[in-house]
Amino acid sequence: MRSPIEGDPSIVFARAKSGIRSSRRTTITLVLATAFLACAACGTKGGSSSTAGPTAGMVSPTNGAVPAAVVDPSTVGSITGIVTLIGPPPAPRLIYMTAEPMCDRQHPTPVVSPEVVVGKDGALANAVVFIKSGLENYSFAAPKDAVHLSQKGCMYDPHVLALMVGQTLEVSNDDQTLHNVHMMAKINPSTNRGQAGGQPAIQESFSQEEFAIPIQCNIHPWMRSYAFVFKSPYFEVTPNSGKFELKNLPPGNYTIAAWQERYGTLEQRVALGANESKMISFAFDAGAAQAANR
């Protein structure tokens, strides 16, 4: 025979009132501690990562409140150089696409991650060289032509791209499978869109300068690319030769930065005179990065 109160949790716990009192105090303390930890953690989030970038040279005045400086074509110079990797490059990392037969079929040979691409004499590809500071008084119009990113063989091409604020980024899907194009921007709005094979290209533009925006396909998690958005046209993504050239630069004192996905960012200060050409180089230390990764 069951007594009337038997098995009613509310009564079981009511009887326990006094016993719980001390536990309750502890629980409240623990909850407050957690809330504090959560706030502390949230406070450390946000912000974007590293640097700014290379190329081109069309310049135009701005319509901001303070009149922008205008680049005088008769005084421009250039900064050229090379990005290299010192030390042995990391062992190539293979990408396994067996989970997606359509992707796998397109690659008769093993696919290597394009994270670190080293050419002759340590030349480092996919590094972004750009002017981090020194152009604050200038304003530049974005080129009309779009920058293209293609998804082919379940890989992004190019692996790293750079464009200007307001310039169009065009993403096409050349595969016969579905991809999602997830642009994980932190300063600009983050977007995530599905794109079936053969669908019209996705067009995107960014209203603010932002560096190293990861572009990822979460359907195929090995697909990752990076986009840099700059206010100025002085940036370049290094080819396999590792070489770069920042042309038509007005004279001034600049901080030039080079970013590489795995090895981070290096910076140099350069004073460029009128009509001057300077050569610099960036050398990433493979050993230091490997030690940091350990």
Binding site: G194, N218, I219, P221
Partner: peptide
Amino acid sequence: NDAADSVP
């Protein structure tokens, strides 16, 4: 599997 955003 890093798939949280695979369906937007």
